[in-house]
Design a binder for these strands. Sequence first.
DNA 1: ATATAGCGTGTATTTTTTACACTAAGTAAT
DNA 2: ATTACTTAGTGTAAAAAATACACGCTATAT
Lengths: 229, 229
Amino acid sequence: MKEVLPKFDSTFSIDCVVFGFDEGELKILLIERNEEPYKDWWALPGNIVGENESLDQSAGRILNELTGLTNIYMEQYYTFGDVNRHPQGRVVSIAYYALLRLGGEKSVKPISTYAKTAYWRNVKDLPKLAFDHQKIFEKGLEKIKRRIKHQPIAFELLPEKFTLTQLQNVYEVILNKQLDKRNFRKKMLSFGVLKDLDEKQQGVSFRAATLYKFDKRRYAKLFGKEISF
Amino acid sequence: MKEVLPKFDSTFSIDCVVFGFDEGELKILLIERNEEPYKDWWALPGNIVGENESLDQSAGRILNELTGLTNIYMEQYYTFGDVNRHPQGRVVSIAYYALLRLGGEKSVKPISTYAKTAYWRNVKDLPKLAFDHQKIFEKGLEKIKRRIKHQPIAFELLPEKFTLTQLQNVYEVILNKQLDKRNFRKKMLSFGVLKDLDEKQQGVSFRAATLYKFDKRRYAKLFGKEISF
DNA sequence: ATATAGCGTGTATTTTTTACACTAAGTAAT
DNA sequence: ATTACTTAGTGTAAAAAATACACGCTATAT
């Protein structure tokens, strides 16, 4: 059976742009490579897809190995296949972006076997990246810029309970522009997918804001009625 | 060098959803397979990516082999990588959609070495497809539904000179809903990217409509000012 | 001359988006 | 307790965009 398919010296990998939102900044997770090629360079976390893994599984595994977390929100967005993108042979890379909650416990201490270190870096201040990872990152950022206008992905970057100001910050930093506070709140609340928790922020040194929660059930019921930001 | 990369029994292919618009209908190009697996089944045109081809090149080649045309508008939109999607081994498939002008000369007589036949089929009346091609098609259709609202892709489905009614038909058939004629025209013309050619339709048995052309230069100048339909 | 089929056009209403600034509430320091 | 400070929370008016809606015009065919 198998011999029917031509085999080249080729393989495929997954690369992940892992976004996190922390202290008003949009960050991504970079690793410092420990192996050739591009040893000691900064790179996006990624890996070869296993023989018996689907692409989504593989991306999930890579994120789990890196963060210890499961059930991370992620989405495939583009596949990079230039012939010479990898110096050691033909490697087609399927890119995923992931969105992570950093708020609160700051739980994400990246670990990885194949990397020396892993750090969160502000997307506005990235080092030079290995391979074509700069391009992969840029396309990923573009993608979430577009998607945040229609899909409720902003919540994936926030703790379960969040304030409207925090939510607005996420939109502002991803869309890279200031939004009007009153208009933002009016519109956001008008979608009817935010649940007022009758609860206030804790531990802030000023007036505490109301906490909200994204109401997935309500959103699901709106069935495709796209949020249009 | 190369031995550093693990090699599996794996390869990648391109599959194309080739859209065409003809006589008010949205169609795609299907081939009848001439080889195992799925011999005699209908399938999306596709092929293995060559060793020294980028993905875009490969998609271009496949389309060229099939239609004889070059410079077809196409766009990669998703990669399908379930472990068992191909019965003969691990084949990850990168999907492209293509948009073709069928109007006028009806020039596209599909040919292919690896297919018995190729036919245009209305998207509303597709046969059972090989592999996971149904899924690939559906995602492709979704994609252009979404994209036609923001990008000037409708023109790729029309001859260079077209009437506003034809343009409206493209939107209607892709969005799968009726649009108001006056509102459509008002909005479409307001973008300022249609050039009135001072020319009328020929050979129609009723009042001839004005022909328009998509003005790429003007569109490019609007730089990202997205059309929002 | 007449029938026919699609072309081309404007206005009023509703909805959505935008612009804009002050008071309230809680904390921290004195 | 008073004060200073910082962020929360709120409404309205104007502008822009989206929608709903119907008929005379024009070229062709007979």
